[in-house]
C-alpha cells in the first residue's frame, strides 16, 4: 500500500546495487547500518548512532525508546531528511532519503507552530506549499481541525492555545498532508499526564483510521507500551538499537491491564540488562 501511495516523491531514485538487506518492498522505513557522527567545535567527533539497522513495516507503529542523548531525534531527523547518515542508508518506501519531503512530516516536541498564523492557516501551510487547490485546502483543513478536536479554534493564534491544543494543531498540520510516514519526536513530552493520555488515545485512533506509518520517539516506557506495535529500545551513546520488543496487546489498550504491566516490566528490564539483549531478529 505504501508503495502505491508514493506518487509524490519521484525526485530520488534508489541506487542500482543496494545491499540485499535494505529496502525490502514490505518495509516502509528502513535503516541499514546507519552511523552518525557529529563534530563539535574544540572536541573530537561524537558518535551519536552506530550501525543502526531496523525495518519498519507499512502502517506499523514503532516507538523509539531510550535515554537522553542516545540518538532518537537524530534517527527521526534522518527520516525527515533534515540530517544525513555518515554511513549506511535510510530508505522510505524503497527510496533513499535525500531531503525533506511532505510525505515524511514531523511533529515536534515544542510544536514549532508558526506564531503569526492562526490555527487554520497553520494547518493549511503544507497544503499551500504543495500547490493543493484552494477549495481542497479548505476542505482538508476543516476535516482535520474537526478530527483533532479543534473545532471553533480556527481563528485562534498559537499563543492563545493550551499546550495540548498546540500539539493537536501540530498533528493536524501534518495529517492534512496525508503523509506516508508520520514522525513524532516526543510530541507529548511537555504535557501533563492527563492531557498526554488523552492525546495518546486520540493518536492511536487517528492512526487506525489513516494509512500512515508512525515512528514515535519517547523516553516514557508507559507511552511506548500503550502506543507501539513494536518498541525499539536504544542504548546510550553510541546509540544502537539494543532490543526490539513486540507489543501484542489488543487495542484499545488499558494501562491497568495485567498484561500491560507485564510488558512494561519487560521493557524496563532492557534498561537493567547490562549486555545488550540481542533480539534483532523481529
Amino acid at each position: 500500500m505504501s508503495v502505491a501511495l508514493r506518487t509524490l516523491d519521484t525526485r530520488t531514485t534508489a541506487p542500482p546495487h543496494e545491499p540485499a538487506s535494505t529496502a525490502r518492498p514490505e518495509s516502509a522505513v528502513s535503516f541499514a547500518g546507519v552511523t552518525k557522527r557529529f563534530r563539535i567545535a574544540g572536541g573530537g567527533p561524537v558518535v551519536a548512532l552506530e550501525e543502526v539497522s531496523l525495518e519498519v513495516r507499512p502502517h506499523e507503529f514503532v516507538c523509539l525508546l531510550g535515554p537522553s542523548g542516545c540518538g532518537k531525534s537524530t534517527l527521526l531527523r534522518m527520516v525527515a531528511g533534515l540530517e544525513r547518515p555518515c554511513a549506511g542508508q535510510v530508505t522510505v518506501g524503497g527510496v533513499a532519503v535525500s531531503g525533506p519531503h511532505s510525505s515524511r512530516a514531523m511533529v515536534f516536541q515544542d510544536h514549532a507552530l508558526f506564531p503569526w498564523l492562526d490555527v487554520a492557516r497553520n494547518v493549511a501551510f503544507g497544503l499551500e506549499m504543495n500547490g493543493t487547490p484552494g477549495p481542497e485546502i479548505r476542505r482538508r483543513v476543516a476535516h482535520f481541525i474537526h478530527l483533532t478536536g479543534l473545532g471553533g479554534f480556527e481563528r485562534a493564534y498559537p499563543h492563545q492555545l493550551s499546550g495540548g491544543m498546540k500539539q493537536r494543531v501540530g498533528i493536524a498540520r501534518v495529517l492534512a498532508l496525508a503523509p506516508e510516514v508520520l514522525l513524532m519526536d516526543e510530541p507529548f513530552g511537555a504535557l501533563d499526564a492527563f492531557t498526554r493520555m488523552e492525546l495518546q488515545g486520540e493518536l492511536v485512533s487517528l492512526w487506525q483510521r489513516e494509512p500512515f506509518t508512525t515512528l514515535f520517539v519517547t523516553h516514557d516506557v508507559d507511552e511506548a507500551v500503550f502506543l507501539a506495535d513494536r518498541v525499539v529500545v536504544m542504548s546510550r551513546r553510541p546509540g544502537r538499537a539494543k532490543a526490539v520488543l513486540s507489543v501484542n496487546l489488543p487495542r484499545p489498550r488499558r494501562r491497568t491491564d495485567p498484561a500491560f504491566a507485564a510488558l512494561r516490566t519487560r521493557v524496563l528490564a532492557q534498561f537493567d540488562a547490562a549486555p545488550a539483549l540481542e533480539d534483532w531478529s523481529i
Binding site: A80, G81, L82, P100, H101, S102, R104, A105, M106, F108, D110, A112, L113, F114, W116, F125, G126, M129, N130, R173, V174, L177, L183
Partner: peptide, 29 residues
C-alpha cells in the same frame, strides 16, 4: 529567525523562495 520553524517549514514541503516569504519575512516584521 527560529531555526525550528525553518525546519518545520521544510518538512512541510517549503523550498527556499517560500521559506523566505513565509518564514523569514514574518519573523523579521
Amino acid at each position: 529567525v527560529d531555526g525550528r520553524l525553518v525546519e518545520a517549514a521544510r518538512t512541510l514541503g517549503a523550498r527556499t523562495p517560500a521559506l523566505l516569504r513565509r518564514v523569514y519575512l514574518p519573523s523579521l516584521v
